[in-house]
Design a protein around this nucleic acid. Structure first.
Length: 279
DNA sequence: CCTGAAACCTGTCTGC
DNA sequence: TGCAGACAGGTTTCAG
């Protein structure tokens, strides 16, 4: 899925506009359709319609990889998983003819001003929840990596009280919210840490470097509007600045050693065997 | 507690 | 050209 920077880009677009997205704040919900039933994790299309039709969008934000849409008395959460996307589009063309939804649309929210929010998702892994208390779901997440209340000292404590392979631990959303396969590989390379390094043997000094690396790659990703890879293009261009991700066989920019690709926790993992070594 | 495998899905690309 | 297999930005669940 989109990881933190991609979700941040989408949520900023829905909140303020930009990156080709029309903001939805202030729009009133006129109707809702669920086109792929499993997309709605709780409730049914019927209960969803009964609850949210008539409500106005108050704000859009992000927590971890969740897009948080705050309504007047409910919250709509969406998780794009591997291939989900959110688009704002018109329901009718200039001649008043209705515009068909995309082939892989799984959830549609129609507004009173003829715009609609489309949740498109070819692989159908994406999910949406609608709830009175978003903490039911968001409360299970670990800290936000860009939140300055997360200090290196705290992260170090979190790391050493576990004994896990570093990369899968960083991707564990209950441990830290927002990192996925791309940004964890990139951050570990920047921090000169091996993806299989046992977490309880990461030193304080290495943790300082790791936290800085995580923040640097996330901020760079956000600055470039995220990454657009495969056939899911969202307008980002961070894919042109990967240091290790999908660069196996190519030279490391720091030392020239060939980038290696291994499987870790069923995910392909890219690293420099010279720069990134286990303690 | 930790690790790995399978499941949920469709689309794209590679190699025979 | 066709077809099998691998692989893809994620998460959950289960077995060992």
């Amino acid at each position: 899925m989109p990881e933190l920077p991609e979700v941040e880009t989408i949520s900023r677009g829905l909140q303020h506009g930009g990156n080709g997205i029309c903001p939805i704040v202030g729009k009133e919900i006129e109707d809702v359709r669920v086109l792929w039933e499993r997309t709605l994790s709780n409730g049914t299309e019927r209960s969803l319609r009964k609850e949210i039709i008539g409500q106005v969008i108050r704000s859009v934000s992000r927590r971890g990889k969740f897009v948080v849409v705050t309504l007047e008395s409910d919250t709509l959460l969406s998780h794009l998983r591997m291939s989900g996307d959110l688009r704002v589009e018109l329901s009718h063309d200039s001649l008043g003819k209705s515009i068909p939804v995309q082939k892989h649309a799984s959830l549609m929210i129609f507004f009173t001003d003829d715009y609609r929010l489309a949740f498109n998702d070819p692989r159908k892994f994406g999910r949406a929840w609608f709830t009175h208390d978003s903490q039911d779901i968001l409360g299970k997440l670990g800290p936000e990596p860009l939140d300055l209340s997360l200090t290196a000292a705290r992260l170090h404590q979190m790391l050493i009280r576990r004994k896990r392979q570093l990369k899968p631990l960083l991707m564990d959303q209950a441990f830290l919210a927002g990192l996925g396969n791309i940004y964890s590989d990139e951050a570990l390379h920047l921090a000169h840490l091996h993806p299989l390094q046992p977490s309880d043997r990461v030193t304080e000094e290495q943790t300082i470097q790791l936290l800085k690396a995580i923040r640097d790659v996330l901020k760079e990703g956000i600055k470039r509007n995220g990454a657009s890879i495969d056939w899911v293009y969202r307008g980002g261009e961070f894919q042109n600045h990967f240091r290790v991700y999908q660069r196996d066989g190519q030279p490391c920019a720091i030392c020239g050693t060939h980038i290696q690709r291994i499987m870790v926790g069923q995910r392909s993992t890219h690293f420099c065997p010279y720069c990134q070594r286990i303690n």
